[in-house]
Amino acid sequence: MSLSDIWDVLVLGVVLGSLYAVIAIGYTLVYGVLQLLNFAHSEVFMAGGFGGVIALTIFEPATDPSGLQSALYVLLGILGGALLGGLVAFGLEKGAYRPLRRRHASRLIFLITAIGASFFLYNLAGKMFGRYPMPMPTMYENKQVFEVFGTSVNVTQLLIVVAAVLMLLTVDFVVNRTKMGSGIRAVAQDPEVASLMGVDIDKVVSRTFVLGGVMGGVAGFLFGTNLQVEYTMGFLPGITAFAAAVLGGIGNVRGAMLGGLTLGVVEAFTVEWFGDAWRYAGAFAVLVLVLMFRPTGILGERVGRTA
């Protein structure tokens, strides 16, 4: 394997991994405030993919867009993904989880509800949008932007990485530097005491879902741009991103980023060396190995503070 081959694989891995990182944030944030494994987050991601398609279909992109038009279409797709992703996450919390919290349901009930909500949502999407893959409307000519050591990087790949990095920086800032973030961290550490400080737990939980949902939704749009959009598209990226969150230390925002990137790169190299049939085996083997030696994940369970 030559050096340029390694770069080829690395670029693919980083593109994939940055998407996993963005999705993993959604799992980790919600786990932080509710200790809930929100398995329906994969459907938030899927909804974002459809949100992008819907937004772009409504505005019908021109067949030969100018640079400015392309940028606008991309922005439109991102907005569509963010909106539908955020909306589904908001509804999920309000409709499925909040009633359970009111009744002080056990964690098992939450988990079963999450899985049920996931089944419901992707089947609903299948019913509404059809059960065949849909391509994302063309927004730009996907040409090479630049080369790194002989590996070409195209517009979609650059878009995914740039958008992911921007989102990760934003969420890191929000969680660590804003009042909303301090509320999220306080609820993650001690909800009862947080409410003694004047933190409205319901509001914080709702905002946390929306924050994770917006990011998951945009990731869905970006993923759909790279491949296609389908009602079952959430499952495998969702479960991989969940693994990424666990790998990094569930509850830890920066751990989720690290875990996502790691699993993306591992996946790309697994496919290169062992073939596509082994795609998910490599990433999960790494997960098992890491958890054997560090059960709390790479950055441990430091829910609130990411120093």
Binding site: S182, R185, A186, Q189, D190, E192, V193, S195, L196, M197, G198, V199, D200, I201, R302, V303, G304, R305
Partner: peptide, 24 residues
């Protein structure tokens, strides 16, 4: 009235066992 609203009335509660936010 729930505790997060009651603090607006000027009540401060130092809970048993201190319960500082350990990771902050």
């Amino acid at each position: 009235i729930k505790s997060h609203e009651l603090v607006q009335f000027g009540i401060g509660h130092v809970p048993e066992g201190r319960r500082v936010f350990a990771r902050m």
